[in-house]
Amino acid sequence: MIPMNLINTFILPAVVASLVWAGTAQARDIVNVYSARKEALIKPLLDEFSAATGIQVNLITGKADALLKRLQVEGSATPADLFITVDAGRLHRAKEAGMLKPVSIPALEQRIPEELRDSAGYWYGLTLRARPIIYAKDRVALDELSTYEALAKAQWKGRLCLRSSQSVYNQSLVAATIDALGPEATQVWMQGMVNNLAKAPSGGDTDQLKAVAAGVCDVTIANTYYLARLINSSKPADQAVASKLAVFWPNQKGVGAVGRGAHFNVSGAGFTKYGKHPEQAQALLEYLASAPAQAWYADINNEYPVVEGVPSSATLEGFGRYKMDPIALEILGQNNRQAVQLMDRAGWK
C-alpha cells in the first residue's frame, strides 16, 4: 500500500525534524518574537540586529489577537520573548491578559516620550502612525474641513468614504473619541458619518484613498503612510492617485475636545511574562528604538519615529507638522470593546 512507504520516507522524518525544530527554539543566544508586524516590515531590521550582535532572532508573524491567544494557551511554556503589535490597544489587551511583564529600561524611558509607552514598562511604542483626514484637492475647499466630528455634518452627505469597522485603526480612533466626547456623543457622531457614506465600507485604507481620487467620495480617514507609499510609488497609476489627494490635520484649533489634536497610534513591543531570554529581548527592543532602526521605519514605511531628534522622511515632512491628541495610549485598549459595540450600534459595517 502506498501510504506506508510514504509514512516511512516522508512523514516520520518531517515530524522528527519539526520536533528538533521546536527544540532549537530553546537554545542559548536567541530571542523569539511573535509579531503582528508583517515580515517585510520587520525582518530586515531583525537581520541587521543578528548581524550586529550574533543573537539569532526567530520570528512568527500573524494577527495580534491570534498571537495573543497562542501566548495565552502556551502559558508558562511559551517560547516567545517579545510581543510586537501595530496598535497600542492590542498591547494593552496583552497586558490585561497577564501575558506581559513590566521591565524598566532607563535608556528607553529617556528616549521614548512618556505617553508613547506604558507607565509601568509593560510595553514601549516604537513608531508613530497618524490617522488624519485625507481629501480630494479639487473638490474640497480647505475651509470645509475642521474636525473629525464635523464629518458627521450634512454637508458631507454622499461625500465620505470609511474603511470597515473591522479595522483596528478605526476601532482605536473611536476608542480615542470616546475618551474625548463620551460614548453618547461618539455614537451620534458615527451615526452621522454612516449616513454620509458614499459607499458601504470595504477594502483597506489604500482603497479608500483610491475611491477619493476616483471621485467616489471626497474625504476619508486614513493612516498617512498609505498615502506616502502612493506618493513614492514608481507606478504612474499610484502617483496619479496621490496627486489628487492632500492631508488635513483635524482638531488643531480651539480648546478642549475640539482642539485635542489629530488621532495617532503606535506600533510597539512588550516583554512576554514567561519569556526565557530577557536580556536578548531587551537588547532587541533597544535596537528597535535606536536611531538607525527608527530612521529605517521612517524611510521604508513612512512611520514617524518615536525618538526625538530622528528625522522623519521627506514625504512625511511634506504633510506638515501637527498637534497630536495627547491621550494616554493605553486608553485605546481600555475603550476598544466599547468602541466596537458603539460601532455595531451606529451601523458602521
Binding site: 518531517a14 515530524v15 520536533l19 521546536a22 527544540g23 527554539a25 511554556a77 511559551t78
Partner: peptide
Amino acid sequence: DSPGLLLSGSLV
C-alpha cells in the same frame, strides 16, 4: 530539561 512545546509549537 523542559522539552518545550513539542506538539503545539511544531508542525504537528
